[in-house]
Design a protein around this nucleic acid. Structure first.
Length: 456
RNA sequence: GGCGCGGUGGCAGAGUGGUCAUGCAGCGGACUGCAAAUCCGUGUACGUGGGUUCGAUUCCCGCCCGUGCCUCCA
């Protein structure tokens, strides 16, 4: 089965054909490490993690590159405001980012280049652009000359006239054209800076991705991903820089963009107070529930992130883990065809999820060897989505961080007491214990093989 | 203003030119000491007005509503 992806370049769903079927390259724009990741940052991570897993299944080798932007004005501002040195700030937020994304079961990329480790490549790239007349130096800055590239605007479908008409913000005096953008800017005393032919300074935002993508994936590679909002100006400018430096060769062949996240129907913003960091969500919700919520809408659709959505995701996972409970499922089962087909059709994760529900129903109904096989199929399907990666019992024992939850031992003891009461037909006492546990968020399930329990 | 996306049953959310999404919630049943979990059954859904068609939620046009981007925000 072939893979189809919606390519922003053509605005159409296209058959994915890698340059080299033996080795697929993918670049996704990563975080600027100045603050903890919020739920909007997590969506592309999870979406492209699903794509990465799928590509690894379909092709013998995949190189997934996701950068860390560790030089940026926001970092400088934050450091200045808090007094935390830049190195400490970027290291701390990078570590937290890793921990948070790990908790969402996102695989680490194969390469995670840091902008500060690629300044030399950026300077070299800028040098080529200046040499070829696509960039010019002015007042310590180096600017990309947008009018020098006839095809500028293809990805975002903007004509240069529109750009100029839309450039209402104040235009820096050193710009020859209002749409020109910064490749290199001067650093003042106390700001991070590197020596360059244009004086001590630091790179503009877009150039790092051009430089690092070239370094780790070559001039032209297969897939470039990121959030919808990056189409313009970031990706448009990356394309301009890279193509003009590389004799017009394409940068990426497939551009894949995920939709935005809103929270309870509103755009997420700090002023509205609906700004959720992944880290604080993880205190109250299992990582897999957050991940499933992010995958419950198609990646190109807007996603409204809600408490109720999280609750539903938790219930869905409860259902699947319930189906896996008991005798362990075989871990080497084949991925069910319909799940693979859903993912290959432009990463249709909601459809894949509906198949997981059907697989769970089938597993619940089956008996004996057929049950084991059905559980294996469900497990394989879940794992393909980066879900169902823990033991069912561990899942059901999960407790929110803040909860003064009963210990597992206390619960087990209460269950034993209740069993004794039940055996003595003292159902009033048995029900009292069950009610008491229920008030602590613990649900009991009496089965033929004894009583099992779960939190939440 | 320019470019774009979307309006599906109580909720979430796929999809399709002509019998089924799926899950949650609800209702009924089986199972259970009672529950929980599980299973079975259960719903005149596709913003609106036209058009194309034997037939449109699905294609085309208009309208209404919502929403995103327009220089450093994933």
């Amino acid at each position: 089965m072939p893979l189809d992806l919606t390519n922003t370049l053509t605005r159409r769903k296209e058959r994915f054909e890698p340059l080299d079927p033996g080795h697929v390259g993918m670049y996704v724009c990563g975080p600027t490490v100045y603050d903890t990741a919020h739920i909007g940052n997590a969506r592309p991570v999870v979406v492209f993690d699903v794509l990465y897993r799928l590509l690894k299944r379909l092709y013998p080798k995949v190189t997934y590159v996701r950068n860390i932007t560790d030089v940026d004005d926001k970092i400088i501002d934050r450091s200045r405001a808090s007094g935390e040195p830049i190195e400490a700030l970027t290291r701390r937020t990078t570590d937290l980012y890793h921990a948070d994304m790990d908790a969402l079961n996102a695989l680490r990329p194969d390469v995670e280049p840091r902008a500060t480790h690629h300044i030399g490549h950026m300077v070299a790239l800028i040098g080529v652009l200046v040499e070829r007349g696509h960039a010019y130096a002015a007042e310590g800055h180096v600017l990309f000359s947008v009018p020098s590239m006839a095809e500028y605007g293809q990805l975002s479908r903007r004509s240069q006239d529109e750009l100029i008409a839309g450039a209402r913000v104040e235009v820096a005096p050193y710009k020859r054209d209002p749409s020109d953008f910064v490749l290199w800017k001067p650093s003042r005393e106390g700001e991070p800076g590197w020596d360059s032919p244009w004086g001590r300074g630091r790179p503009g935002w877009h150039i790092e991705c051009s430089a690092m993508a070239k370094e780790h994936l070559g001039v032209t590679f297969d897939i470039h991903g990121g959030g919808l909002d990056l189409i313009f100006p970031h990706h448009e400018n990356e394309i301009a820089q890279s193509r003009c430096a590389h004799h017009g060769d394409p940068l990426a062949r497939y551009w894949v963009h995920n939709g935005f996240v809103t929270v309870e129907g509103e755009k997420m913003s700090k002023s509205l107070g609906n700004f959720f960091t992944v880290n604080e969500l993880l205190d109250e919700h299992p990582g897999e529930a957050i991940r499933l919520t992010l995958l419950s809408a198609h990646y190109r659709q807007p996603l409204d992130f809600t408490k109720d959505g999280l609750r539903q995701s938790k219930l869905a996972l409860d259902r699947w883990y319930q189906a896996l409970r008991g005798d362990p499922a075989p871990v080497d089962a084949e991925l069910p065809f319909e799940v693979l087909a859903a993912l290959e059709d432009d990463l249709n994760t909601p459809l894949a999820i509906s198949h997981l529900h059907e697989l769970a129903t089938a597993a619940n109904k089956a008996e004996g060897a057929a049950k084991a096989a059905a559980k294996g199929a469900l497990l394989a399907a879940g794992r393909e989505l980066g879900l169902l990666e823990q033991e069912p019992e561990a899942w059901f024992r999960w407790a929110p961080k803040a909860a003064g939850a009963l210990s597992d031992e206390a619960i087990e003891q209460a269950i034993a007491d209740r069993q004794a009461a039940r055996k003595a037909k003292n159902f009033a006492e048995a029900d009292r214990i069950r009610k008491e546990l229920a008030e602590q968020g613990v649900t009991l399930e009496d089965g033929p093989k004894g009583t099992t329990w779960k939190r939440g």
